[in-house]
Design a protein around this nucleic acid. Structure first.
Lengths: 105, 105
DNA sequence: CAGATATGCAACCTTTGAGTTGCATTATGC
DNA sequence: GCATAATGCAACTCAAAGGTTGCATATCTG
């Protein structure tokens, strides 16, 4: 459970358009074509973003007839949040210890 | 408190080299020059990364004589984690509601 | 003061990533 | 079966991002 699998997730979350997509999916599953109707980019661009998000494990494809809808995986976000919180806490703790040592406590 | 300020943070966290820097800083404050000794990139590259991290509020500069050390801000990570968790939870909740509606409950 | 050490700045190269257009393909629905 | 609506794939453009080298500038330390 190193930062290895974490980085792609953050990279995926580090783009405005992808956030728009995630937010849109937060209101219900949708296909690339459907999303293209709501966002100011082409269907193909959205398809690429969805691929990135899927690779990062943030969305999941769901076939529905000839449509390929995507579902946002909130649990993955919660998971990432937990790991992030743990790291932040550890760094703070470690640096506090260093500070104490430096102050000769 | 929109996703606005959140995106740069994730963008900053979406790079392996920057993680290396953060991890290194997690073991104690350090300057760009000091970090250059431990990482396989030049001091200037590290300086740029530190600028990005600082812009995202993840590190903080600390002047120490002629040295400019950087301190990692774990609290900012915890903050980001909280927001991420809230979003994931809300999406899950909303989608669960939609599913119920779709199932005619 | 002098030399060493640290940062600051700028130009440059190269790769990646976001976005587009165009066309092929596949699967529905009547 | 056929027109339609959706996805898949490929080539291309353009800008940004990561990285480098080189040099200027400050600032300790002996």
């Amino acid at each position: 459970m190193t930062a290895g699998t974490l980085v792609p997730v953050f990279a995926a979350l580090g783009d405005e358009t992808r956030w728009s997509i995630l937010v849109a999916l937060g209101e219900g599953d949708a296909s690339a074509s459907a999303l293209a109707g709501r966002l100011p980019v082409t269907r193909q661009a959205i398809a690429k973003h969805l691929a990135v998000l899927q690779e990062a494990g943030l969305v999941e494809p769901v076939r529905a007839g000839r449509e390929l809808r995507f579902r946002v995986l909130g649990s993955q976000l919660a998971d990432t949040a937990r790991r992030l919180d743990a790291l932040g806490a550890e760094w703070d703790r470690r640096l506090a210890t260093i500070k104490e040592l430096a102050e000769g406590l």
